[in-house]
Amino acid sequence: MTGSTSLLARSWKQKQTKIGTAIILVVLFIAIAGPWLAPYSATEFVGPPFTGSTSAAPLGTDVLGHDVLSRTLRGGLFVVWSSIAAAIVAMLIGVTLGLLAGYRGGFTDGLTMRGFDIVLAFPQLILVLIFVSLIGPKAWLIVLLTGIALSPGVARVTRGLTQEVAQRDFVRAAELMGMSRRRILWSEILPNLSSALLVEFTTRMIWAIGVIASLAFLGLGPTSDVGNWGLMINENRVGLPIQPLGVIAPVVVMAGFAVGTGLIAEGISRSMARIEGARTS
């Protein structure tokens, strides 16, 4: 029972993990295979705007008369990949700086944490907004900035855990063997954080979905003809009273993506609490 591999195996026993994974797989399938399955292109007119369900367009049409089903199938990729990528960026920045700050302490620690104070002074969404506002909604920029906006939380958790682990005596023992700082961080401390960081990753992904979907909803996602789930919700909400499907379809997949991730996060953290609990008693 060591490391995160067995944690994954254990968390699989939690029903939350199983349900979450099933939901995520469906959403991923829609986002990735969707474009091939879509009956129409994203810009084809299949009827008058805001037509309800018909045999040709089972989910009806949107504000411009495009097929809602096709746009739902084609518009998922951006939100899905960029949320995952942003969470990875947040982990890379947060874990690296959190480890260094937690282990080296002193000046490094002070500097890093003050740096994060600045990031934390912006509401997450607004940090991304100000950069995107004049530079333009480039996908890489959105991913990078969302990652930066989410990294202080990761760093804070990593730093706290690192401090806790670093004051344990096996780290002293490694220091007394003359082991290099990098090796101590990498092979003595990091393995002790792996389970907690796995939970952290899934949690940050939920946040990332929130930020990126909100940006898309505000119309600040990367511009393309295909559109995306967030933008669809924004465009079609004026037709809510007559054609709610244009909003409901993207809302369902997006909520599914977020809730699925949330369930997996919960499953992992529950099984982690169990392992760690058994260990300390």
Binding site: V247, A255, A258, G262
Partner: peptide, 18 residues
């Protein structure tokens, strides 16, 4: 809390609107 907490704010707003 687990379910609602995962859903983006504006999606909740849309659901409330509906």
């Amino acid at each position: 809390a687990l379910l609602v907490g995962a859903i983006p704010d504006f999606v909740i707003g849309i659901v409330m609107t509906i």
